[in-house]
Design a protein around this nucleic acid. Structure first.
Lengths: 136, 136
DNA sequence: CAGTTATGAATGAACG
DNA sequence: CGTTCATTCATAACTG
C-alpha cells in the first residue's frame, strides 16, 4: 500500500548513540536515549501539545544528539499523550460500576478558563503545520 | 465477497484484544486499495469538496469494492485536502535549512464568492443529511 | 531466524 | 477549515 523507501539492505544496526553518519534516510526515526529522556522530561513538565515554535526549538535541541525532524517531535507528543490516555482507559475497563472516570485535565498550570468563551481569541494560531511527507 | 473490514494488504492484525468480528462489525472504515486509488484519482482530477450528490455517487461507486458510507467519502476529502495543505504549508522545516518564506498564497481563485457563510451552512446541512439518510 | 513487543507513522473521525 | 483525538498499520528492537 504505502510504498515508502523500503529499507533495501541492512543498514546500521543498533547504533544507538551513533549519529547518522551514513546516508540512511529511509526507515523510521529511532530516537536516542538522550532524545527520549529530554522529551519525557518536557512531557512530565506538563507539555502536551507543543506549538510549532516549540516543536522547532525542541527539534533543534535534539538534533545535537542525532538526526531528527520536526515531525518526529510532533508525532512523539501525539503518541505519548495518546498512549497515556489509552492506558488510563484500559484501567477503568475492569470496573463495571458506573463509569465515573474523572478526567485528569492536568494540561497546564495556568488557569485556563474553560468558560464560555464564545467569541474569544481562539487559539487558532496555526499549531502544527510541519508535516512534510511524501505522497503519491 | 464484498464487505471486508480488513485491509486487503498486509493484515498483520496486531495484538488487539477483543474486537471480535461480530458479523461485519468494524470500528472505523478501512478503505481498500481500489477505493483509495479511485478517491485519489478524483482528487488529482481536481475534486476538492464534492457536493452531496457527488458524494453519494462516489460512495455508491465505491461500495462495489467494499463497505463504505457517504460520510466516509466526505471525511476522506476533508482530511486529504487538509493534509495536503499541511504538508505544503511549511515544507522544509528542518533546522538548519534556510527558512523559506511561505509564499503559499492559498487564496481562492474563484470569484464565485456569493456568500461563503451560506455555502458553509449548506455544506453542514448536507453532511447531516449524509449521516441521517445513509442507506445501502 | 521466527514470534513478540514497543513505538514511529498514518489516517479515519470529530471538534471548535 | 484547521486542529485534535482515537485507532490502526508498519517496523525497529527485543527475546527465545
Amino acid at each position: 500500500m504505502s510504498g515508502f523507501c523500503m529499507k533495501s539492505s541492512g543498514s546500521s544496526f543498533h547504533g544507538k548513540s551513533g549519529s547518522s553518519s551514513t546516508g540512511t534516510k529511509c526507515g523510521r526515526w529511532n530516537p536516542t536515549t538522550e532524545q527520549v529522556k529530554l522529551l519525557t522530561e518536557l512531557f512530565r513538565a506538563g507539555l502536551r501539545t507543543p506549538s510549532t515554535d516549540q516543536i522547532q526549538k525542541i527539534s533543534n535541541q535534539l538534533s545535537f544528539y542525532g538526526k531528527i525532524e520536526s515531525k518526529n517531535v510532533f508525532y512523539w507528543f501525539q503518541n505519548h499523550k495518546a498512549r497515556e490516555r489509552q492506558k488510563r482507559r484500559k484501567v477503568s475497563f475492569d470496573d463495571d460500576k458506573d463509569v465515573i472516570v474523572h478526567r485528569d485535565n492536568s494540561m497546564n498550570t495556568s488557569t485556563q478558563s474553560k468558560s464560555k468563551i464564545t467569541y474569544s481569541i481562539y487559539r487558532r494560531i496555526s499549531f502544527i503545520h510541519l508535516l512534510s511527507f511524501e505522497f503519491p
